[in-house]
Amino acid sequence: MLSGSVWGTGWRRGELVAQTVRVDGADGQADVVIVADVRSGRLVRALELPWSDSTSHTRCGVGGCPVKGWLGDDAVLIHSLIYRSDGSERSRLLAWNIRTGALTRVADLPERTVVSVADITR
């Protein structure tokens, strides 16, 4: 059973909306990026981003992994934060293709970066 709360801003592209949801599950906490159809409310796709991994780093977590917009009609932009055990962080802008499921790195970002994205179309 999952329970959670909405995190950050939802981004709409046509009849789809992308949003990050924070969830608590049997395996711990995670951020889940969901894409839903605005007319039917049907869940189109979901991407789980766990909060921790085997290296004791915390992914997402406190700052979340918020959706930052769309890249064309098929890719959701996500700001991924990884907090290392030494207090440093790694920040990346990712593109998640909702048709194929591919997750690719768009950019590695400096620490403490604020990401602001305008509507990007091809």
Rank of each mutant, 00 (worst) to 15 (best):
C60F: 02
V38N: 14
G87F: 12
V33F: 09
G28D: 01
E89K: 06
I34Q: 15
L43T: 07
V33W: 05
H79A: 15
P50R: 03
R112I: 03
L49E: 01
L103K: 03
E111Y: 05
S88D: 13
S52H: 14
D119H: 11
H57N: 14
I34N: 00
K68Y: 04
L71A: 01
D73I: 08
K68S: 15
Q29C: 07
G72N: 12
V44Y: 07
G63Y: 09
V21H: 03
L93I: 14
S52P: 00
R59F: 11
A107I: 03
V33K: 03
A46H: 09
L77D: 13
V106T: 11
A75T: 15
L47V: 04
I34C: 13
A102G: 09
W70E: 06
D24F: 13
V21R: 12
V23P: 07
R42H: 00
L77S: 08
T20C: 11
V115T: 12
R42T: 00
V76T: 05
R90F: 03
G101M: 02
W70M: 01
R84D: 13
T113C: 10
R39F: 00
V38Y: 01
V114K: 04
R99M: 03
T58Q: 13
S91R: 12
S54N: 09
L71E: 02
V115Q: 02
R22T: 14
C60S: 05
I78E: 06
P50V: 10
R92G: 02
L77F: 13
G64H: 07
D31Q: 06
V76S: 05
R112A: 07
G101K: 05
G61A: 15
D24C: 13
V35H: 00
S52K: 08
L109V: 09
S80L: 11
P50N: 14
R99A: 08
G72M: 11
R105Y: 00
T100F: 04
A36C: 01
S52C: 00
L109G: 14
G69W: 06
V33R: 03
A30C: 15
V33Q: 01
L81E: 05
A102C: 02
T20L: 05
A118Y: 10
V35A: 05
D27I: 01
R42N: 00
D27T: 02
V114A: 15
G101Q: 06
L77H: 09
